[in-house]
Write a protein that binds this DNA or RNA. Structure first.
Lengths: 185, 185
DNA sequence: CATCTGTTTCAATAATTTCTGAAAGAACCG
DNA sequence: CGGTTCTTTCAGAAATTATTGAAACAGATG
């Protein structure tokens, strides 16, 4: 027996699945599931929604909704809107997947890579100088230094890349990606 | 009053700081801290180590050490070695930062992006067809379809890119990165 | 300014993830 | 074999992270 479904139910179901997968993936990347789900909801519906609507749809508390929304605003991937005659705040997601991606990468670089880079510099400067040692010790210290330098150089390249291609304005990454992905056909 | 320190202590200290920052960063990316620390330890010392040495240095239990090592092997960023006359297994980290990075990206694509992509296809195929609707509904369904397509196309480009540049053999990414980072000087 | 609507904060709690340690499992050895 | 050494597993404990809900806050409104 087939189970006929209205288009609205079918759409809602599809949206829910999208929201769930998005949330799942986010979890694997150190982003809270709820925050990702809120974003997925705003993205996939395309409609501005207020806090109560988000709460209802995702079955979460007001506090959680408020904090998730705040975090998404901080990441710069959703924005506030208002409706005439309605005092509530509405939120809508950036509908451009690439610009969304750029925002995320930019923010993560700032939050995680930059501090690490700073620490790596510090560690390098606090590491014992190979000149002061001899023989096996010196070799060891040189190798240590080399490993630090390689890691540093890697991180610096990454930072440069991100600055160049993931900058808020430029669509460099998108272009590059499209071109490069065409090469193997 | 200056606090003179032997080179060994200084080196150990630098290593510990490296291990700690590495572990911290990993946490932000959904990788367990201990696993990252074990990797950092093997990378920064450069020496093959056995389970007991890792346990002692990181102050973790045997079970934890065993599981972390196993995970690192699965990721392909450390490998087994043996020492003559010693039945213990030794582990050493891939010393090439770029190949390490490729392994990580490859593995994450396989584990997280590919399943998501598969789900997105499913969702698209289970979404209501716009042809069956009229007026406002149709517009809505078309917009939904478009958003799914855009996400799909983004993911596909990413997958292609990773296959091309992060393949186990090729050093494509490294080259590209170096070239690109030179452009703005 | 009292009230009403909407938003944020945060201590308490719940859920999840990570870690431990002891026991079981493998592999080697004489 | 039985003993020895090393490794893995996994149930329970500990630590960490996410979520709730109620109270405080902020701003509009009459």
């Amino acid at each position: 027996m087939p189970k006929p479904q209205g288009q609205h139910e079918q759409l809602t179901l599809a949206q829910d699945r999208f929201i769930a997968s998005w949330g799942q993936m986010a979890g694997a990347w150190g982003i809270s599931r709820t925050m990702a789900e809120a974003h997925a909801l705003l993205y996939i519906t395309g409609h501005p929604m207020n806090t109560d609507e988000i709460m209802d749809r995702l079955q979460i508390s007001r506090g959680n909704a408020s904090m998730s929304i705040r975090a998404l605003l901080d990441w710069g991937i959703i924005s506030r809107t208002h409706k005439r005659g309605d005092r509530k705040e509405y939120f809508e997601a950036d509908q451009d997947v690439w610009s969304m991606f750029r925002s995320i990468v930019r923010e993560r670089m700032k939050r995680e890579v930059e501090p690490l880079l700073a620490t790596l510099y510090e560690i390098r400067d606090a590491s014992p100088a190979p000149d002061d040692a001899t023989g096996k010790d010196q070799k060891e210290l040189l190798a240590h230094q080399k490993r630090l330098e390689e890691m540093l150089s890697f991180m610096k390249v990454m930072e440069k890349l991100s600055q160049r291609f993931v900058s808020p304005s430029g669509s460099g990454l998108e272009l590059a990606a499209k071109l490069l992905s065409k090469l193997d056909r």
